[in-house]
Design a protein around this nucleic acid. Structure first.
Lengths: 143, 143
DNA sequence: CAAAAAATATGATAAAAATCATATTTAGGA
DNA sequence: TCCTAAATATGATTTTTATCATATTTTTTG
């Protein structure tokens, strides 16, 4: 479904949503260990997220990564788009060029509805909401 | 979502459902070209499908691949299981070991319903039904 | 029974994804 | 201002996936 990279990135962002803020920055290694992702790899993944302003960072001592209010209002799909590219989730299940609403492939019809649901959720739920579901106890860690 | 291998395999099986039967066998190259998959690669993919009896074959001249009545009654998920393995679609979206109904991860709740729908469809619709949707004109090729 | 046509089996190569390692830049504090 | 701690940038390696190539077995037909 998603690449490992996207999964790692999502986990990292969720972790930051729960454990960081403007004043409390977290170093890669302190993200990588608890979410169970190789540190060097995660460091690399975080770069495009910072560049696209889904995650904030400051260098140097006392530096690290964190989410500010704007970052918190992004959605999971934003992360996926940055890491895996825009096409990954949009294309037809069989990756058929010519499959679309008018000329659906045999799998299209039986799956569109659910696929749309998933897409909607991934693009409408904010990181903040997801983090909140953990805080209020309706969702759980560890990542 | 799915590996290319699974997509190729599904396309091949759908093609056979529409263009083969016990008496009319189709050679790999005559499947590979129309469904737009490298021939040698497809040949390799077909082997496990034959072994698991999702596809039928006979060797030698006038030989080839085809689907019999039993083959037609399998589902798309059977193909995925043979090619990608059982775990591929079952695991949590973030591949969290410990994510389950009782302790769902933050993405779990918002996606379970649609995921279940997709899974149900993939495992309940038979190849025959999917092929029929093309014959009756509610779904379309080319693959 | 031999030759040819097909699948089947096996292995080699190429490309992509994941992982690891190292050098560079930036910011804070002594 | 210099040292250190952090992110950032870049490149190398490993692993997985996809692809290509070739040898072997089976079946039909002349």
């Amino acid at each position: 479904m998603l690449s490992n990279s996207s999964k790692y990135a999502i986990k990292a962002v969720l972790f930051l949503a729960l454990h960081s803020d403007e004043e409390k920055r977290v170093m890669v290694k302190d993200i990588a260990v608890p979410i169970n992702v190789p540190q060097a790899y995660l460091a690399k993944l975080l770069q495009p997220l910072v560049k696209e302003e889904l995650v904030s960072s400051v260098r140097g001592p006392k530096g690290g990564f964190y989410l500010n209010e704007e970052n918190l209002n992004h959605s999971v799909i934003d992360i996926i788009h940055v890491i895996d590219g825009e096409q990954k989730l949009n294309s037809c299940m069989l990756s058929l060029e010519k499959c679309n609403e008018e000329k659906p492939c045999p799998l299209h019809n039986i799956l569109v509805a659910s696929r749309k649901d998933i897409l909607n959720n991934l693009e409408n739920r904010t990181i903040k909401e997801l983090a909140f579901s953990v805080e209020e106890g309706s969702a759980f860690l560890p990542l």
